[in-house]
Design a binder for these strands. Structure first.
Lengths: 229, 229
DNA sequence: GGACTTTCTTGTCATATGGCAAGAGGAGTT
DNA sequence: AACTCCTCTTGCCATATGACAAGAAAGTCC
């Protein structure tokens, strides 16, 4: 667990702590020392829509840069403009908003294979209202806005792919919204367990609770009820 | 009010009733008999992002077809694939989903200048879970999927515009989701009044209630409380 | 105009969930 | 091992909202 070591910066100074900030005297963990073949492997799966031509992938894949985050690192901070997005190769990530009373509300959880992106901020170039934080140590593949724009406007398959991802997120969000109205908390929790079991197992109850729109107290009781069924 | 006349078809036969189905013996209302200059005027405002070049607009605008709907007409039915979208020049539109018990849940309201579209169904080409229905008689400008695709892939400004609309919808949906968690019903209602006052005035209370995630009974009481403040 | 349907209001009572606080159990630190 | 956090559970009571039902009010149709 040598790489769970987290350097402590004064919060105001350095809210975003990336792996680049690690003390260089620590040796890189062996899993990070991989040859190009292996590095590409993960992204190849991501773009495994048959639609992509080989030549296109040869342009696209090298644009992604491997970045790793330590547990609790921020990928994005409230108030900033989202200038990049990531695919997760390993680890869990959470996004959350801050409500008027300062409490945080989980807005999403991400795991292996997911895109971590603040769509509105990334595309509308305005400052985000969300924070994105690593729940565990993570390995990610990063693309920045400018590079994205270039690929988006020059490769038709790439923009179809991007659009489909965005619309997929929209759909998921809408289903959740409807569920907030039609389902009781217990039902919403059951759906979450069904759809994202790894998330439920890896995320503290309180963070799941705000995502579901209940208090941690209630969620604890809900779990108890479900267990006794 | 001559054109609130609505032809009745057996439901199973003809769930979607467009203006084309009207008895041709009715004369068209004068507002529909407009010259080309006027017809283009509305859409010009829609695409009034300075970014568009004149030549581009000359390609884009003629692709939109004017369609009008009568009150209660369906623009889209659950189970179908959304093959077109509309800009509203006049009137109000509601989309709604049907919950497991058969009750309908308003998912959105649209008024002048809005795009009426089921993003997921339109782009992912799968059958929708929503219905879209005219709340009043409407004048709309319609584009179908194939034409959209052509414009999207051939005109960069057009795709930026489309992407911005989609992301804008995503953002609005997300804000609503968060509001469902952080705000009480009264607060959510106040926000709706503030953001879409015309909607609140033109939509029956029950339909507003399902949108806000409360019963019509509760919303009625909420209104009373607010009135007495 | 009168009958009918739909929409909205109001009362009574039930229920899901919140607020608060105390305590149990783990994990990490010294 | 003792200490400190942090997470989770549980009890007690409060409150927002739902369910149901009866009217009132408004709109629609013939």
């Amino acid at each position: 667990m040598y790489w769970a070591i987290s350097l402590l910066f004064p919060i105001g100074d350095m809210l975003i702590r990336r792996s680049e900030n690690r003390d260089p005297s620590y040796s890189q963990p062996p899993t990070l020392q991989r040859n190009i073949m292996n590095e590409k492997h993960f992204l190849t799966n991501i773009f495994n829509d048959q639609q992509f031509k080989k030549e296109e992938l040869e342009i696209i894949l090298p644009k992604y840069k491997k970045v790793d985050f330590l547990k609790n690192d921020f990928l994005l901070n409230e108030g900033k403009v989202a200038n990049q997005y990531w695919f997760i190769e390993k680890g869990f990530v959470r996004s959350f908003a801050t409500d008027p009373e300062g409490k945080d509300i989980s807005t999403n959880f991400y795991s292996v294979g997911d895109v971590v992106i603040d769509w509105p901020s990334f595309f509308l170039r305005n400052s985000t209202r969300e924070n994105i934080q690593a729940l565990t140590d993570c390995i990610c593949w990063q693309l920045d806005f400018e590079t994205f724009q270039h690929l988006f406007h020059s490769i038709e398959t790439f923009r179809e792919h991007g659009r489909a991802r965005l619309v997929g997120s929209y759909f998921a969000l809408k289903q959740n919204s409807i569920s907030m109205i039609t389902d009781q908390a217990k039902e919403r929790y059951k759906k979450l367990v069904k759809e994202k079991p790894q998330i439920v197992q890896n995320v503290p109850l309180k963070q799941l609770a705000t995502y579901l729109g209940v208090t941690d107290t209630s969620l604890s009781r809900i779990r108890k009820e479900i267990a006794s069924e």
